[in-house]
């Protein structure tokens, strides 16, 4: 796949504005390639002065099937790791340390209650909590990315605490480097 770069699309003809977008994307076929004024420009972080780099594992590598890693569950509106869940994360660390060609995407989920936008943030927090613990267990941070689905992808449909507690979770997706 292509390098992760951003491009600036000058849509001045349409709305008098600059539009920034990534050049490498699954939207490639939909893009109008002859938009006037389109130039490739990397997006930089103004504090570090560095270009934002790093491709998503989902776009770059093939998914690994057949390895079962148990979901990690969370309390309501919390991204703290409960003592009961630590052993599951240790299993994931063990797998990654034994399989150096595997990389991991930690996936965060929430129950259906509350703001969809906040739940997307909360799901990211949950994924980051797990990722942080894996780093503490000796897994190279560069081998792990996160993605949040917020409350969009419940493990179980319905409502009530018996359903919600199974939906407040972190899941693991392995990719082959």
């Amino acid at each position: 796949m292509m390098k992760s770069r951003m491009m600036i699309a000058n849509l001045a003809l349409m709305c008098g504005l600059l539009v920034v977008g990534t050049g490498c994307s699954w939207f490639g076929e939909e893009e109008i390639t002859d938009t006037p004024g389109v130039i490739d420009v990397p997006v930089t972080d103004s504090d570090t002065g560095k270009e934002i780099t790093g491709e998503r594992f989902e776009d770059k590598y093939k998914k690994v099937d057949g390895v079962t890693l148990s979901p990690v569950y969370f309390a309501f509106d919390s991204y703290a790791l409960a003592p009961s869940e630590i052993a599951k994360i240790e299993q994931v660390a063990k797998h990654l340390l034994a399989n150096s060609s595997h990389v991991l995407v930690v996936e965060g989920h929430c129950d259906a209650r509350g703001s969809a936008e906040y739940n997307l943030a909360l799901g990211e927090n949950r994924a980051q909590s797990i990722r942080g613990h894996l780093v503490n267990l000796g897994v190279d941070a560069a081998r792990m990315q996160t993605r949040s689905f917020g409350s969009e992808k419940p493990a179980m449909a319905g409502s009530g605490e018996d359903v919600w507690r199974l939906n407040r979770r972190g899941e693991f997706a392995l990719y082959q480097k």
Partner: peptide, 14 residues
């Protein structure tokens, strides 16, 4: 018309 990603970096983009 068309659509473009504004941000699809590692992690959250929203």
């Amino acid at each position: 018309g068309s659509r473009r990603p504004l941000a699809n970096f590692k992690g959250l983009n929203t």
